[in-house]
Amino acid sequence: MTTILLDPTAARASPARQRVAGHRSLEGLTVGLLDIRKRQGDVVLDHLERLLGERGIRTGRYAKPTFTKPAPGAVIDRIASECDAVIEGLAD
């Protein structure tokens, strides 16, 4: 006697993706800091932003409206057009 079961799982959403290469150096580039809005994360980003500035790296600040939801497409578009690299955090 054979029992046939149907697979309840999804096939992998997307094939494995290589992440884009980093820059040779951040000198003269703009780094965006994206605050995901977890408590106290902004304070760490503030300090990090200051430390990057001391090393001559330009920065820009962005925020998700709420940590509970993915970043809106408009925020991502703005970051991508204004920044050369992104720091996102802080997830805890």
């Binding site: 006697m1 054979t2 029992t3 046939i4 079961l5 149907l6 697979d7 309840p8």
Partner: peptide, 19 residues
């Protein structure tokens, strides 16, 4: 018309344990 992958279990495999 079902498109999901299937798993064929032969006795005495217990579907509850396999799942």
């Amino acid at each position: 018309g079902l498109e999901s992958a299937t798993l064929s279990l032969q006795f005495p495999e217990d579907p509850f344990e396999i799942m």
